[in-house]
């Protein structure tokens, strides 16, 4: 009896392992049908002429090679859309990461002992959870012309002329038509993104900083390092993986930017050429007028490629530097050992 027990348990262990397949099967089944196949289908469509015309006539799919890509790159607004997306992402991300780092440094500084951190975090993170569409329409209304709240505020503050402003006939002379101007709209969109996300980034960075072993800071302090030296020589290098994570997730998210710029679009506004993002362009191709799935798919494939390449480049830049530094340190150590 006692001899058989472990053998039996072992047999049972081998027996249950096949359940693993049953447990992960739903995920893979649904993934293949609803995500992998659509991705392959998108790639396939990118090489086809396939559209539904305004009169509901289906054209294609017929193979056309690279014609769709050529069309969207040369004739279409793909490059402009990529430029718009990149510009708006950059003017949101750079201040976002800097402010988040600064706040995280303050909140984790044991010397400063900032109180009320919980409340600050709750308030600063709050916009992130609210529907981006609602926030955008809210800002769209705040920046309305000529008598939206921002223009009213500017008049109350005396930035734009109040006397002229009160007379609606001449309001056009002074009130600012924000959403008709390309750069104004770009900045508003970037600001909303920044405003919605710096709290999130800050919380992630704080968690990362709190994860660094306190003994490292203590050792540096004992050695007489200044707070700034500790931050640049210890905190930042050790935070690198989390900074990379933040950068990549923000980049991938930023490349898909849709809700905010779409909602900021005023019908027929000349600002559109400067604020149309890649996903907005895809939507325009497949949703309005002639539904051109071939060209929409081509832009999607380009977006996929650019996102993938950028993430891989970022990943390698960050990783290589680490590796070379390690190699250098190793070399130095060897030299010292020899001396």
């Amino acid at each position: 009896m006692t001899n058989r027990a472990p053998k039996k348990r072992h047999a049972k262990g081998v027996d249950t392992s096949r359940y693993g397949y049953f447990f992960i099967a739903p995920f893979f089944l649904i993934y293949l049908v609803f995500q992998a196949y659509p991705l392959l289908n998108t790639i396939y469509l990118a090489f086809q002429k396939y559209m539904i015309t305004g009169t509901n006539k289906v054209v294609g799919p017929t193979f056309v090679g690279l014609a769709n890509f050529k069309n969207v790159l040369v004739k279409g607004s793909t490059l402009q859309a990529f430029e718009n997306t990149a510009v708006m992402w950059l003017i949101n991300f750079i201040p976002q990461i800097l402010l988040a780092l600064l706040l995280a440094k303050w909140f984790t500084d044991t010397r400063l002992k900032i109180r009320g951190q919980g409340a600050f975090k709750v308030m600063i993170y709050m916009p992130n959870i609210i529907t981006a569409a609602s926030i955008s329409v809210l800002f769209y209304s705040l920046f309305a012309y000529p008598q939206g709240p921002i223009n009213s505020l500017l008049a109350q503050l005396g930035v734009i002329d109040k006397a002229l402003y009160a007379d609606s006939g001449t309001a056009a002379l002074t009130a600012i038509y924000f959403l008709e101007k390309g750069w104004h709209t770009r900045l508003i969109i970037a600001f909303i993104n920044f405003w919605m996300w710096y709290g999130h980034t800050m919380i992630v960075l704080i968690a990362g900083m709190l994860g660094i072993s306190p003994s490292l800071f203590e050792a540096a302090e004992v050695d007489g390092a200044s707070p700034n030296q500790i931050f640049t020589k210890i905190t930042l290098p050790l935070l690198k993986p989390i900074l990379l994570y933040t950068l990549i997730t923000s980049l991938i998210g930023g490349m898909q930017m849709y809700d905010i710029p779409q909602m900021m679009q005023m019908q027929g506004s000349p600002a559109k050429t400067m604020t149309m993002t890649v996903t907005m362009y895809i939507m325009e191709l497949v949703y309005t007028g002639t539904k051109d799935y071939g060209r929409g798919a081509a832009v999607s494939v380009l977006l996929f490629l650019v996102t993938a390449v950028l993430s891989i480049i970022l990943f390698y830049i960050m990783r290589d530097k680490d590796a070379t530094r390690e190699r250098k340190a190793l070399k130095k150590a060897r030299k010292e050992a020899r001396a």
């Binding site: 609803f34 995500q35 196949y37 659509p38 991705l39 392959l40 289908n41 998108t42 790639i43 396939y44 469509l45 898909q256 849709y258 996903t279 895809i282 497949v286 799935y293 929409g296 798919a297 999607s300 494939v301 977006l303 996929f304 996102t307």
Partner: peptide, 8 residues
């Protein structure tokens, strides 16, 4: 979003 066209 990148596979939405094929998905649709």
């Amino acid at each position: 979003q990148v596979s939405m066209v094929g998905f649709f």
